[in-house]
C-alpha cells in the first residue's frame, strides 16, 4: 500500500469487527471476569512503553518512558492475576467448601438447630433466624 496509515486503518477496522463478534451472549456471571480479562489485554501498551523507553534520547523521555513501563506492567500482571482469581469458581468443583468464593466469603455456618446448638447467623441477616426457634 502506498500510504502506511491506510494499512493501519485497515487493521483497525477489522479489529473493531472481530472485537464485536468474538463476544456474544455472555452470561452475566462472566461480565466482571470478561471485563477484567480484556483489561489485562490492553496492558499490551507495555510493548509500546518498552519501545518508548528503549528509544529514549533525553532525560525527560527516559523518565516518562520509565513511568509508562511501570504503569503498563502493573496493568498486565494485575489484570491477569485478578482475572485468574475471579475464575477460581469455574475450577472443577472440589468437594470441600472453598474458603473464599467469587461471591465473597461467607461465614461458615455451624450446626443446624436440630443439632441442639443455637444457629449462628452471619451478621446482617437476622431475619433468617427469626422463625428457627420453632422445633426446640
Amino acid at each position: 500500500m502506498t500510504n502506511p496509515i491506510l494499512e493501519y486503518l485497515t487493521v483497525f477496522i477489522l479489529a473493531v469487527f472481530v472485537g464485536f463478534e468474538v463476544i456474544s451472549k455472555v452470561p452475566s456471571i462472566l461480565h466482571t471476569p470478561l471485563m477484567s480479562g480484556s483489561n489485562a489485554i490492553h496492558g499490551v501498551i507495555l510493548v509500546g512503553s518498552m519501545a518508548v523507553l528503549g528509544g529514549a534520547h533525553t532525560g525527560a523521555e527516559e523518565a516518562l518512558g520509565f513511568v509508562a513501563v511501570v504503569l503498563a506492567t502493573l496493568n498486565v500482571v494485575g489484570g491477569f492475576v485478578v482475572t485468574d482469581r475471579m475464575l477460581e469458581m469455574f475450577k472443577a468443583k472440589p468437594s470441600e467448601p472453598r474458603a473464599s468464593g467469587a461471591r465473597g466469603a461467607r461465614g461458615a455456618r455451624g450446626a443446624e438447630p436440630a443439632g441442639g446448638s443455637a444457629p449462628t447467623s452471619p451478621s446482617g441477616d437476622g431475619a433468617a433466624t427469626e422463625t428457627t426457634d420453632g422445633p426446640r
Partner: peptide
C-alpha cells in the same frame, strides 16, 4: 497508530470494541 504498531492497534481495538459491547 502513533508508534506504527499493529500489535497495539489490534490489542487496544479488540478491547475497545468488545468493551463497549460488554
Amino acid at each position: 497508530f502513533t508508534l506504527n504498531s499493529n500489535l497495539l492497534i489490534v490489542g487496544g481495538t479488540l478491547v475497545g470494541a468488545s468493551g463497549i459491547l460488554l
